[in-house]
Amino acid sequence: MSETIARAHESHEAEASHGHPTYGTFIKVWVALLLLTGALVGLSHLGQTAAVWGLLTLTPIKAALVFYFFMHLKYEGILLKGVILVTLGTLLIFFVLLFSDVAFR
């Protein structure tokens, strides 16, 4: 009996973490986004090279946080994740093709 209750409690917790994440997670993500923005501003004061490195590293991390938590991709199945990965992969191919063309012009 107690085992059944324990299992029910466990599955309820699993459901809560899958379908209904709590406020705390989102507030933590928001704080992380603000800190990363601060870091980006700080890097931009160190010169052009640091600013561009900040753009290329911190900005995708910020976007990933929004996609993963705020847009719930963490809690979605392979279908929706796949749609996004294919899209971003396609954009990356466009970037690579364009700049390989520019480089050998």
Binding site: T37, L40, V41, L43, S44, Q48, A51, V52, G54, L55, T59, K62, A63, V66
Partner: peptide, 10 residues
């Protein structure tokens, strides 16, 4: 998030 560094910071 992308427009900020592209135009204002970097």
């Amino acid at each position: 998030i992308f427009l900020l560094p592209l135009f204002y910071l970097a």
